[in-house]
Simulated assay, not measured.
Amino acid sequence: MMTAALLIPALILDAVLGEPKWLWSRLPHPAVLMGRLVQALDDGLNDGDGRRGKGILAVAVLVLVGLLLGWALSCLGSVVSVLVAAVLIAQRSLVDHVRAVATGLRQDLPEGRAAVAMIVSRDTGHMTGPQVARSAIESGAENFSDGVIAPVFWFLIAGLPGLLVYKLVNTADSMIGYRTEAYEEFGWAAARLDDVLNLAPARLSALLLALVTGRTGQWGEISTDAEKHRSPNAGWPEAAMARALGVSLAGPRSYDGEMREFPWVNAAGSKSPTAHSILRCTEVLWRAWGLTLAVVVALCLLFSLI
Rank of each mutant, 00 (worst) to 15 (best):
3 T>Q: 14
4 A>D: 05
7 L>S: 09
11 L>C: 02
12 I>F: 03
13 L>I: 00
15 A>N: 10
16 V>G: 06
17 L>H: 06
20 P>T: 10
22 W>V: 14
25 S>R: 15
29 H>R: 06
32 V>Y: 03
33 L>N: 05
34 M>C: 01
37 L>V: 15
40 A>C: 04
45 L>Y: 10
46 N>G: 05
48 G>H: 01
49 D>E: 14
50 G>I: 03
53 G>I: 02
55 G>N: 06
56 I>R: 09
56 I>G: 14
57 L>F: 14
62 L>Y: 13
67 L>K: 11
69 L>D: 05
71 W>T: 15
72 A>G: 08
83 L>I: 10
83 L>D: 02
86 A>Q: 11
86 A>W: 13
87 V>L: 06
87 V>Q: 09
89 I>V: 15
91 Q>F: 10
91 Q>V: 07
91 Q>P: 02
92 R>W: 09
94 L>G: 13
97 H>C: 07
100 A>P: 02
110 P>T: 09
115 A>R: 15
119 I>A: 04
126 H>C: 00
128 T>L: 05
128 T>V: 05
132 V>T: 03
134 R>S: 13
135 S>K: 12
146 D>F: 08
146 D>K: 11
146 D>S: 11
146 D>M: 11
151 P>L: 10
151 P>H: 09
152 V>N: 09
155 F>I: 04
156 L>G: 08
157 I>G: 06
160 L>D: 01
172 A>T: 06
177 G>H: 08
177 G>A: 08
178 Y>K: 07
179 R>P: 09
179 R>A: 14
180 T>N: 14
180 T>Y: 06
183 Y>E: 08
193 L>N: 04
200 A>T: 09
201 P>D: 07
205 S>M: 06
206 A>D: 03
208 L>G: 12
209 L>G: 07
210 A>T: 02
211 L>K: 08
214 G>D: 00
215 R>C: 05
218 Q>P: 00
219 W>S: 12
219 W>F: 13
219 W>V: 06
222 I>P: 04
224 T>S: 15
225 D>I: 12
232 P>F: 07
232 P>W: 05
233 N>I: 08
245 L>M: 02
246 G>M: 00
247 V>R: 02
250 A>K: 12
252 P>L: 12
254 S>M: 08
255 Y>W: 11
257 G>M: 11
257 G>Y: 08
259 M>R: 11
259 M>H: 06
260 R>A: 09
261 E>V: 13
262 F>K: 14
265 V>H: 05
266 N>A: 13
270 S>H: 00
272 S>K: 12
273 P>M: 07
274 T>A: 09
278 I>V: 15
278 I>N: 12
279 L>T: 13
281 C>E: 03
286 W>Y: 15
290 G>E: 00
291 L>P: 04
292 T>L: 14
299 L>V: 04
300 C>G: 04
303 F>D: 11
305 L>G: 05
